[in-house]
Nucleic acid binder design. Structure first.
Lengths: 336, 336
DNA sequence: CTGTTAGCGCGTTCAA
DNA sequence: TTGAACGCGCTAACAG
């Protein structure tokens, strides 16, 4: 391991001043062509790399955008990450992804790292344990642009890209009602999070509209797994009034339910209808294929980045609220 | 947006020298308790955050580790990312994930960003288009520790965590042969990558050992999708000698094959056996469930981080080769 | 216990 | 066209 080469090293070696080297490296026109070529050749030869810490210390921001998600290995998030990374790269930015692991403390640590390192901007979806937005507000304090997508903090003045969860869940519930299902259950996450709360309201209001008295909402705070899904169905079928349809926020949970339904000899969709949020590939290789609610990840990713870039380039002020709603869509398959 | 608060600001406000503030903030014992409390209180009150650019400029490395993967939305990688993030966090590091998108230019840009920002270390799996390791070697030049996992550059002196792809593919092929399958095909990625090359060798050598003359290897360089899988089976079934078993490197491809097999009225496993690499959940909700080759992501993640941490703490020198082999495992299910 | 000073690498003055 | 000097925020070495 050799010592990192600096502009001073180059200057000394070529008998010019380091400020001349600095100018040459940035193609400043006020430098002799031959000097510049000499410097550039030497720099390339010796793998010179700007020390961004020095540059950023002087107040210049970098081209790295932080993306914070609760879980990287969820189809919804990993698809968004993937699209966002590509969109940003085309605009000259590098996306750096952080996983909060649904953990408040980690989320705070991540934000602190981002501030300490002067990232250009942040795109985030909050953890399900986040009830305090102080750390996100810090970003504003430090002049770092922030865009929320999907899960957000209500009390913050910042752009948000959200899914019309209320409307689509209302629509899905109504669809089940019109199909003749009578006892529709709803499985979702902690309802202090906007996403899950919107879904719950959509579900409840559809029931009210159609004067359905059976209402069963399960708000789960554990990690969604296939095993948990199996257990859920076992519990649900143990009750007096068993549901004949389930709207669920988690593909894994629903897969577990479907597997358990087989063991119970429940026919899907005759005995039990299923609708699930997400685009997990498992839903289309299952038999029957699951009816899903698709939340166009491409559109969310593009919108979020577009908003962030405007803030980075100061085309849009930091700390101004603005909400973009993306339409989810029911993909009708065989499970209803 | 207010100006970022610095130790000098605090010093001026509290009528002490900024070096005292610096000491107080780092709990240096050589500072009066009351002074320290005053400083800490003021800092907390005003959301002071260390400017890491200044700290790193002085040669101290940060606690951020970069993780480079070809694709974030592949189960194998997203599982590793998830575990690695948690393992690193417990040791006091923050993982920052970059996606090369199987693109050489992006990979180079990512490495440059990492060098410019002085990351503590790098854990990487190379893109399928990478044939030159110059950019990775640069990391060594700049004293940034590097650990490869899964896909690596042959010609580099650095720790590597690899899967025993040769042995496990040999075993899988032999398993199919012993089950009586006669025309076994192999679908994989570009074989200049160690992973795919090892699998190809394992496949071929098993055929040779058992004197099988039917050999059909397809080396695909496109993105693996369900659609491509369907097309693959269409092509394969168009040939004179149709395979009766397929070992595949991609879950998506294999899902496509399974779906297309249904349309062809091919029974699995009677007419067509399938074995696929990976732990994608789709493989266990399908009917029949797919026999898979599982490559313990936990173990890979833990080993890779352990090695990297040793290099970061200088317990192990940078630029020294060392290969850890992780054992993959065949999960026997219904598709063979 | 606290203050002074210097320097990390860079870019931007201002001067020549 | 080039050089000299300064400062971004921080810490370490030294002085008091």
């Amino acid at each position: 391991m050799q010592k990192r080469i600096t502009i001073k090293d180059i200057a000394k070696e070529l008998n010019v001043h380091h400020s001349t080297v600095s100018r040459a490296l940035r193609n400043d026109p006020r430098v002799n062509e031959s000097t510049r070529d000499m410097v550039l050749a030497y720099a390339r030869e010796h793998d010179y790399q700007t020390n961004m810490n020095a540059v950023q210390l002087r107040g210049v921001t970098n081209n790295t955008v932080a993306l914070i998600v609760p879980n990287i290995n969820h189809t919804f998030f990993s698809d968004i990450i993937s699209h966002l990374t590509n969109a940003a790269y085309e605009s000259g930015y590098i996306i750096s992804v952080f996983q909060s692991n649904e953990d408040f403390a980690q989320e705070v640590d991540i934000i602190n790292t981002i501030i300490k390192q002067n990232y250009a901007g942040v795109i985030a979806s909050i953890s399900s344990r986040t009830t305090d937005s102080k750390h996100f507000k810090l970003l504003n304090t430090f002049g770092i642009p922030l865009v929320f997508f999907d899960r957000m903090c209500d009390d913050m003045q910042t752009p948000k890209v959200l899914v019309n969860n209320y409307e689509i869940t209302f629509e899905a519930t109504e669809y089940l009602i019109n199909k003749g299902y009578e006892r529709i259950a709803h499985l979702t996450g902690p309802t202090h999070i906007n996403v899950f709360n919107d879904r719950l309201r959509g579900y409840t209001n559809a029931l009210v509209k159609h004067k359905h008295t059976f209402e069963l909402n399960m708000e789960l705070d554990e990690e969604f797994t296939i095993e948990l899904g199996k257990q859920c169905l076992i519990n649900l079928m143990d009750a007096n009034e068993k549901p004949d349809a389930i709207i669920s926020s988690s593909t894994l949970l629903t897969m577990g339910i479907a597997l358990q339904a087989r063991e119970f000899n429940l026919r899907i969709p005759e005995d039990l209808a299923l609708i699930v949020f997400g685009n997990h590939l498992g839903t289309i290789v299952m038999q029957p294929q699951l009816t899903t609610i698709s939340q166009s990840e491409y559109e969310i990713a593009d919108l979020a980045f577009e908003l962030l870039e405007k803030m980075i380039t100061r085309e849009m002020p930091i700390g101004e609220a603005c909400t973009k709603l993306v339409n989810a869509q029911i993909i009708y398959r065989e499970s209803c």
